[in-house]
Each structure stands twice: as structure tokens, then as C-alpha cells.
Design a protein around this nucleic acid. Structure first.
Ligand SMILES: [Mn+2]
Ligand SMILES: [Mn+2]
Ligand SMILES: [Zn+2]
Ligand SMILES: [Zn+2]
Lengths: 142, 142
DNA sequence: AGAAAATATTAGAATTGTTCTAATATTTCA
DNA sequence: TGAAATATTAGAACAATTCTAATATTTTCT
């Protein structure tokens, strides 16, 4: 078995930094999540990916892991669909296209969208974050 | 019992226009939804309001009605929270503040937010709608 | 109006995504 | 290495929503 020790140790560091033990399951999920660039996954989705990659991990652990990673800032949640939660490996400020037809998310860099002014927030509240979701659907064939 | 026959007939018209029979339940829900200005409700929420207004309607009918009204354009859905669906009586183009702490939505008029340019959509797709959600939370007391 | 057809409502069961429980396993560290 | 801490897991529980199929209401047609 050949290891990419570079990426492997990055994953390890990431977990340690976060105060999470680098267990077999967490490392494997880390690799799936972070070794192939920005991605958006649901729990079921990641669980399936894990299974097809030969990783033995329970759905409960997938949920635990996604939440722990979110809590420590390795992931963020994207709310676009009320029947499923999406987790995003891109935790920088950005927005999304959402292709409702196939439940697919595409990043929009923060600087690609300019929100001018915001009206004042409801009394006694502060802005946590601004989410822009551009809902798109397959264009009708010509 | 006193009737506001003006509003009553507006409700009736609205249902007929949509091709939905003006049943007792639908009319009652219409009144709850549309007679007190823009509002954002969940199904449970509306069901509870109905009960406390003395309207006998099942939760299944509340769901049916919310979906039917959405289908014919009397309501729109707002996705802000993956554990509950919100329906909005304001079907004009607008955005939202979402107070996560209490699950409360506040309208932002479309013209209060200016989204400059949009990047081009993913290949083969068209924009359906742009949703801006400004997530806010109660500011810490001074 | 009365009968038949169309549509709506409902209780309760089913489904689905997610969370919880508590028993077992792994990891850490002195 | 052994005790303490933490993690994993199967399966039960949960909560929002949808489905089913029996009953009721509304509309249409004579
Ligand atoms: Mn959490
Ligand atoms: Mn659900
Ligand atoms: Zn993203
Ligand atoms: Zn609104």
C-alpha cells in the first residue's frame, strides 16, 4: 500500500490542532473531504463515498464527524434544501449556485458578488453572515 | 356573528382564480394567512394558530393547503433552516433577515439590496431566483 | 332538488433525515 | 501496561413531512 505521507500528515495536523483524536475513521473521512478540493457533501453522500472507498464507518460517525468538523471550523453548513443538510469544505466567505434539479452546489467566490448596502438589522441583532443562493435549473433544450 | 364580507369575497376570489374549491378549511386558512399582512409560517405553526382560532383542520390539510397555495403562487417557500419549512405570504421579489435564535424571519424589500453582477451560471442552466439570507443573532448586551 | 362525479379532508401509518443511547472499542498517557 | 478519556457503533428514538385509503363535502348534471 502506498501512502501520500505529505497529505496524510496535513490531515493529522488538522485533527490535532482541533483537539480531535486522529482516529482511523476521522482520518479517512478527512482524506475524502479535503484531498480533492472544495466539495459539498451530505451525510448520506459521504457515507456512501466512504463505503465505496472501502472505509468501514457508521452513519452515526459520519454525522458526528461532520458536526465536530463544523464546530471546529473545518467545515461549514449550507442550507439550500430543507430535506437534506449540506456540508462545505470551503469555509472561506463565498456564495452558491444551487442546481435544484440534481441537488448540486457550485461555489461563487465572495468577490464575484457585490452586495451593496444592507438595510439595518432588526432591533437588537447583529449580522452573523450573509448567504446568497442563486437557484438555477437546466435550461430548456433549444 | 359579524362578517367582513369584503375580505371574505377576496379570499373566495383568490381560491376560485386558482381553481381550488373554496372549502371551509381553505377559506379559514386563507384568512389566517392573508388577512394580517405579510407573514412567514411553518405548518405546525399555522396548524396551532388555526386551532387557537377555533378552526378545526387537520395537520395533513394544513400541509396540503400550504403546498397547493405554493403551487398556484399564493405562497412561496423560504429555505433557511433545515429542520423546518417556512412559507411566505409575500410572493414578490424580496429577501430576508433570519434570526436563528428564535426562528423568526423579517422581510428585506428587493430594492434594499443591490446585487451587482452575477457570475455566469453553471453550463446549461438559467437563474430561477436569487435568495439573500442575512443571518442575524441577538447582540450581546452592553 | 336529487343523484352521480369530482374533489377534499382526515386519522393514522409510513417514510426520511437526523439524533440519541448505551454498550463496546480504541486511543492516550502516566 | 493499565486506567482514564474519548470514539465508534447498532439500533432505537425522534420530528417533520408525506402517504393511504376511508369518509365527507362540493360541484355538476339532469
Ligand atoms: Mn452541532
Ligand atoms: Mn426530516
Ligand atoms: Zn461552497
Ligand atoms: Zn418574506
Amino acid at each position: 500500500m502506498v501512502h501520500d505521507n505529505r497529505a496524510f500528515s496535513e490531515v493529522l495536523d488538522r485533527l490535532r490542532e482541533a483537539g480531535l483524536r486522529p482516529t482511523r475513521q476521522r482520518m479517512a473521512l478527512c482524506k475524502l473531504l479535503f484531498e480533492k478540493g472544495d466539495c459539498h457533501v451530505s451525510a448520506e453522500n459521504l457515507h456512501a463515498e466512504a463505503k465505496s472507498a472501502g472505509i468501514k464507518v457508521s452513519l452515526a460517525t459520519v454525522y458526528n464527524t461532520l458536526h465536530q468538523f463544523t464546530d471546529v471550523g473545518l467545515l461549514r453548513q449550507v442550507v439550500v434544501d430543507n430535506s437534506r443538510s449540506y456540508f462545505d469544505t470551503n469555509v472561506t466567505d463565498h456564495h452558491h449556485f444551487f442546481v435544484e434539479a440534481d441537488g448540486h452546489l457550485v461555489d461563487i467566490p465572495a468577490e464575484a458578488i457585490d452586495i451593496g448596502k444592507l438595510p439595518k438589522t432588526p432591533p437588537g441583532t447583529n449580522v452573523d453572515r450573509v448567504d446568497v443562493i442563486v437557484r438555477v435549473s437546466p435550461s430548456r433544450r433549444k
